[in-house]
Design a protein around this nucleic acid. Structure first.
Lengths: 197, 197
DNA sequence: TTTACTATCTATAACCC
DNA sequence: TGGGTTATAGATAGTAA
């Protein structure tokens, strides 16, 4: 007869789907479920070859995005699906492209910063289950950066046309994604963007 | 001693996350998982108050979108987050707004069509768990409409500035969503858009 | 904060209509 | 072919570090 071991936890409990009042558990839940959501999205893409994108703005207004084959591709597709090709004199598409490229550069800048601290090789190490076709997707987590900062950052980015200096006061943590996205999950403190140009 | 009952099924089996080869099961999987994904997204929004959007293009290139508080809001936010406010002379925002509004109108047109067949009251009947705050989200499923058709539709929509006549040959099925999105899930046959204006 | 650990709940693969 | 059922795989609430 085995020794009765006390349960270590009640395990998952059923919850009602309504706004969580407790702020800290709300944040924990956001973190966990956001990851789960991105994971689901990625699985959907892999299993069915579908193109998809997910955007999430945390309660603290941080922006997260996931996309396959890339956020840019999906959003472009969405936008162009709603815009007759070659129409609209000064089509917004070109403008978007600039914006999106700036964003990508920002992401890359973040990634580079991360490397300095923790050796991110995310894009590579995610090859676990056969995701090796092309550049697979683009999971971009821009934690600890408010929209205003992102806005300012990109605005400057556009002006600088690819040459930025970013001062980072604090970077949270590097790729801790389960396996298959480029999950920078890095934080750029709002005040971190202090002076560029 | 209970009579031993033969298992009725093996139940869920473990699968490898890689492209499903069988076309029909791929489609079934897309349908199921897309619903699950939207559900997850909706739960995330409710639980944490986060704003989020999900876009998915099925293998057959049909477009689906979900968003809280609305697809428009989230995509606008995403775009404006990357565009300095009041900058960019002829900002693309206005253009987008037009596009997005057209899209919404399209959705509403679809919804109206659905009503004629099946009494969609989706937005209302989803109140099950306390989702009653405001107009909650915008889950838009544009099945059976290729991107090209959507493109053409919206282009015309823009020109018509709100006055469209759509000929619909076939509408698949109406709101079959679990509970809480406006899931039109309606099909507008590609050839259904025959002549408008 | 973010991560780890379970026990449990939930999503869903395989079936069946 | 979409919808329903069963049983298991996978996600995650509660908790602690």
């Amino acid at each position: 007869m085995a020794t009765k071991v006390k349960k270590q936890s009640l395990g998952r409990q059923k919850i009602e789907i309504k706004k969580i009042e407790n702020k800290s558990s709300l944040e924990v839940t956001f973190t966990k479920r956001r990851k789960g959501l991105f994971n689901k999205a990625s699985e959907l893409c892999v299993l069915t070859g579908a193109e998809a994108a997910v955007f999430a703005f945390s309660p603290g207004k941080k922006a997260f995005a996931f996309g396959y084959p890339s956020v840019d591709t999906v959003i472009d597709r969405y936008l162009s699906a709603n815009t007759e090709e070659g129409r609209s004199v000064n089509t917004s598409a070109s403008h978007h492209r600039v914006v999106l490229e700036s964003r990508k550069q920002y992401a890359e800048a973040l990634a580079k910063k991360e490397e300095e601290k923790k050796r991110v090789e995310t894009m590579k190490e995610g090859g676990e289950v056969g995701f090796g076709r092309d550049r697979f997707w683009w999971d971009l987590s821009i934690e600890d950066m408010g929209l205003e900062e992102l806005e300012r950052y990109v605005a400057s980015m556009e002006e600088l046309k690819k040459n930025v200096g970013i001062r980072v006061d604090e970077l949270e943590k590097a790729s801790n994604s389960p396996s298959r996205f480029l999950d920078l999950d890095s934080g750029l403190n709002a005040k971190g963007i202090d002076r560029y140009i």
